[in-house]
Write a protein that binds this DNA or RNA. Sequence first.
DNA 1: TTATGTATACCGTCTAGTGAGTATATTATA
DNA 2: TATAATATACTCACTAGACGGTATACATAA
Lengths: 215, 215
Amino acid sequence: MKENQSPTRAKIIAAAERLFYAEGIGRVSVDAVAEKAGVTKRTLYYHFTSKDELIEAYLTARDQPNLALFRRWFETADGTVADKTKAIFLNLGHSASHPRWKGCGFLRTSAELASLPGHPALKVGAAHKKRFESWLAATFAEAGIGSAEPLARQVLLLLDGSFAVTLLQRDPTYMDAAGDAARVLVGTALRQVRGRRPIEESNQLSLKLDNESSR
Amino acid sequence: MKENQSPTRAKIIAAAERLFYAEGIGRVSVDAVAEKAGVTKRTLYYHFTSKDELIEAYLTARDQPNLALFRRWFETADGTVADKTKAIFLNLGHSASHPRWKGCGFLRTSAELASLPGHPALKVGAAHKKRFESWLAATFAEAGIGSAEPLARQVLLLLDGSFAVTLLQRDPTYMDAAGDAARVLVGTALRQVRGRRPIEESNQLSLKLDNESSR
DNA sequence: TTATGTATACCGTCTAGTGAGTATATTATA
DNA sequence: TATAATATACTCACTAGACGGTATACATAA
């Protein structure tokens, strides 16, 4: 297997990440990726058997870094779980103000490949969003929220909705609106917890890190 | 001007609607649209100056029918405004169960053309979603809701989120989750209205129409 | 000396868009 | 009323280039 990370393979994936995210997978040729990576096309095809496999590798490479970024945004925010949830949207709104921001690479790839169910890249994208949803649900459950799973699902829907709408309208204030809705939903669930067993939700002090661009 | 609807032009747009929605604009050639419409490519280029103009015409043709469908789903549902809002998601979930359903054509086009800001088709898409948001806001305001605009925005975010997530996961139950969140948000706003001036929200009897596929 | 990695050069196919010409209908003129 | 001119709506055949992918050869290192 050549699944390991040879430097050349890593360079190719890095080039694919930048180009596929910036232009969309259909508008980027294999030649362009090879050129950006500084290798010949034949070398690219030595490391990947097809363009489809390269697309899959592109999303696989984004999976963990994206999740880590969301987690960090959540964990470094002040306030209740509801406030911390909203912090994800605030940070995302900041990212979306950057002209190079182009929404969520997973969702955009899913839109482009919608006519190819079963495409390996779609499985990677679906698994990525599931992991995010599961992490949210676990975090909510830890805070004592009973309906953690449906709540996590609703927050995911708001998040992906704000990706889609902000990309279309090019207006990051939609992120704030989604964050408000998420804070209301999480806050309501949280108040039910406190009703049963008081306090327990602590105000965590934390750094406010500057955000990177999120994909 | 040939902006009017000659039968040939209408045939071409109808073919474009089916193919672009089913496969995505990047994966459909102008030749394929011409063939599906039963005209030569040169005839297509007689009616449209470029593929981009054809894409724009495709979304323009979907604008009013889609809005009308959502309105009908809302208006024909029983219950409060919150219930009627949720009905949109329920109907959409039903549409999404069909194997030919491929999400929202406006959002998918926006994802494909994300690297071309200012593309005419993107303006059509943005205006379409704005019209939906405005209609929702007006409907909420009519029901006496004070925060009609932010509320409409939140429902839009849930709607487009459910388009994106349901397409990726191929699981229409996400539509139900989004509908629940929307019902909670609208219901909360509605209860504040009732708190100030009681009743006023009537249970409207109405037919439950069977839905068409929504794009 | 065998496996890994890279390069040059190429193939067949598909793409958006065009050049040049034609059938038909309507209008203007004698 | 017959004829000439013009506009509309369409077709066939083509271009120039981009596309994904490959055959072959050469280099390097264990």
